[in-house]
Simulated scan of single mutants.
Amino acid sequence: MMNKAEKTRQFIIEKTAPLFNTNGVAGTAVSDIMAATKMARGSLYVHFQNIDELVNCVVDYNLKMFVERTTAVSDQHESAKNKFFALLDYLSDPLNPPVQGGCPMMNFGMEADDTNPVIREKVNEVVCGVQQAMENIIQKGINDGEFQKEWDAGEFATKSYAMIEGGILISRVSRDISKMKMLVRLLKEEINEHSI
């Protein structure tokens, strides 16, 4: 059970998470944070030592929400094929992403790659974790006899992740999800080709 201070801290994180994920770290001003939380600047600093601490918490929160929501969708299914298909379907509309503002790995990763090694490492850990989770699904399917034994689960997971992130970028920039739909179809076709 959280005490009042912990609840307020969590409230600030949850209210500002979409701001940072949409506008970026550099594009989010203290005045934006104050407007979103309806709190004075001094009140914010009661709960966070500085903006960097808040940013780190918000990045963690956005990444965690993305992973939890995508995992929950995949976990609704038993077979590896259905797990992966559900994941692809869930991510197939980048204009309506699992986390407000878009993919936090892409958003924070691109902004932090040259500017913030702490955030870059947080994003890298999640990127590696997501790819490992995808590989585990394919490996489960191989072990369960759903997929061909010679299929390289790690290679497919890396390719899938890269295609999904690329599709997210194309879709969000063009405001058109047709290319993402095509990429999802191609990934599903490859999964079907390796199915037994």
Rank of each mutant, 00 (worst) to 15 (best):
D89V: 13
T37Q: 09
K188W: 02
N124M: 10
L187S: 12
A162N: 10
P94M: 01
P104L: 03
F108L: 09
V118D: 12
K7G: 07
A133H: 09
I142T: 07
A162H: 05
E53S: 00
F85Q: 13
N116R: 15
T37W: 02
R172L: 10
A133V: 05
V46M: 10
E150N: 06
E193G: 00
E78A: 07
N21T: 07
S92K: 04
V46I: 14
L87W: 00
T22I: 10
D89Y: 09
A133S: 10
I191D: 02
K83S: 04
D114Q: 14
S31D: 11
Y61S: 13
V59F: 05
A35W: 02
V127N: 05
E150C: 02
C57T: 09
A26H: 02
N107I: 00
G101S: 01
V73D: 04
A86S: 12
F20R: 02
I33F: 01
D176P: 06
V59S: 00
N116V: 12
G145P: 14
A29Y: 10
Q131K: 14
Q132H: 13
V73C: 06
A112S: 14
E190C: 03
M163A: 06
V99F: 03
I138E: 08
D89P: 11
K38A: 11
W151E: 08
G141Q: 03
A40Y: 00
A26D: 04
K64E: 10
S79H: 04
Q76W: 04
H47Q: 10
K179S: 15
T37H: 06
V67L: 06
A86E: 05
E68S: 11
K149V: 13
A133M: 12
A35T: 05
C103R: 07
L169R: 12
N56K: 09
K81H: 06
L44D: 01
N56R: 12
P104R: 08
T115V: 03
Q131I: 13
K7P: 08
N124D: 00
F156I: 10
K7R: 11
N3T: 11
K179F: 15
A29Q: 15
Y61F: 12
A5F: 10
L54A: 12
